[in-house]
Computed example of a mutant assay.
Amino acid sequence: MTTMKTRGAAAPNPNFTVFSHVKYEHLVAGISGGVASTLILHPLDLIKIRFAVNDGQTTTTPQYKGLRSAIYTIFRQEGARGLYRGVTPNVWGSGSAWGFYFLFYSTIKTWIQGGNAKKPLGPTMHMIAAAEAGILTLVMTNPIWVVKTRLCLQYSDIEAAKLPDNKRYAGMLDALTKIYRTEGIRGLYRGFVPGIFGVSHGALQFMTYEEMKNSYNQYRRYPIDTKLGTAEYLTFAALSKLLAAAATYPYQVVRARLQDQHHDYKGSLDCVLRTWRYEGVRGFYKGLSPNLTRVTPATMITFLMYENVSHFLLSLRKEPGVM
């Protein structure tokens, strides 16, 4: 009671500033999870992007009958290397995105809790914290996602040779340089608007994940920050991702198409209208199957590694007699 009274009477107290709750452990743990899941599952991410941008109108886009057909075709035409096109920016993007996201989210959440990790926030505050973390992360990582998408969409060296030099990329740095030189900052932030809408994906996922963890611990009569077992983390991560992915997938299609160098949309609204006109509702869910096949195990790996690494690192920070 004394702590809460002091907090209410002295809002400027530095003990309750946002920066006092920044812990590098969440950054390191998030990066670890993001990099591990990306290295294992990148080929499925590449296929998801290629399905998403396939509007049936562009002749340079390869046609795949399904997930198995896509893997076979890419491997036959581009080799094993083809399945890992864009992996470098994807590792950088996923690692930094998950790292920053967990860092921002844990910092904002702890600040809202007033430093008391055992205080439940409820669905609304979880979504607010996750949305704020998502916007901050998107601002920092959008250029990397643009580069990743474009590298994934260089279907083969032969097809790439047909593109203008400014749309043919030798790698991550070359892509960043050419996009900035020919399209400016705006080019590096293509897909940012649907990305903002996509923040709802992370907010919904984290809210669901946190609420399931809290409810489970409360059911067991344990504090909500009690470490869970591997099975619980994997189950809650999978369920939260499936729910969020099914609800928000269309924005990912629009975002990928805006970032695709083979298309020339005037903006997000133009992309939505043209997709609806030529493909209907189905067009907004292209690539959903490979996406779910990829993101579900990716999320399970990421969250499991994050939870274990962060708990381990945070346990090293604690000293006897503190708190």
Rank of each mutant, 00 (worst) to 15 (best):
R181G: 00
D45S: 14
K118R: 10
L39E: 06
L176C: 08
L151Q: 15
F100P: 00
T61P: 02
R294I: 02
R282H: 13
I40L: 14
F303G: 02
K318N: 09
R76C: 01
G95R: 06
Y216S: 12
T275E: 04
I47E: 06
M1D: 05
S94A: 09
F197W: 07
T182G: 00
A238K: 10
G267D: 03
S37M: 15
A237W: 02
M127L: 13
L292I: 13
S215K: 10
D45N: 15
A160M: 06
S215D: 06
G287V: 12
G66C: 07
H201N: 13
F192Q: 08
G33E: 01
N217W: 07
F102T: 02
N308M: 10
E132S: 13
S268E: 12
F312T: 11
Y219D: 01
R50T: 03
E211I: 01
G184Y: 08
A238E: 05
L258F: 10
N54L: 09
T73A: 12
A161L: 04
V146A: 09
E183T: 05
P194G: 02
T110Q: 10
S156F: 06
Y285G: 15
A70L: 08
E183H: 07
E25H: 07
V22Y: 00
F19V: 07
F303S: 08
Y249V: 13
V272P: 01
Q261G: 04
P297S: 11
G134F: 07
I112R: 04
Y24K: 00
G122H: 08
L288A: 14
T38D: 03
A129N: 10
A70H: 05
L41N: 09
S215E: 03
T107L: 01
T302C: 14
Y72E: 11
I49L: 15
R274D: 11
A11N: 01
I49C: 11
R50E: 06
L41V: 07
T58C: 15
T208S: 15
I47N: 06
F100Y: 06
L269P: 00
F192C: 02
I71F: 14
I31N: 01
P290G: 14
L151G: 12
A10C: 05
L188V: 07
T248L: 08
G30M: 01
M4C: 00
F51A: 03
N166C: 11
E211Q: 10
A203W: 09
S310K: 03
G134S: 15
Q259H: 04
K148W: 13
L46S: 03
L67H: 09
K148F: 13
A129P: 08
L67G: 07
V295G: 03
T58M: 14
S315M: 00
V309S: 05
G95E: 02
P120R: 04
Q261V: 09
P14F: 01
W145K: 12
F75I: 06
A97R: 04
S315E: 04
R68T: 15
A161E: 15
G114H: 06
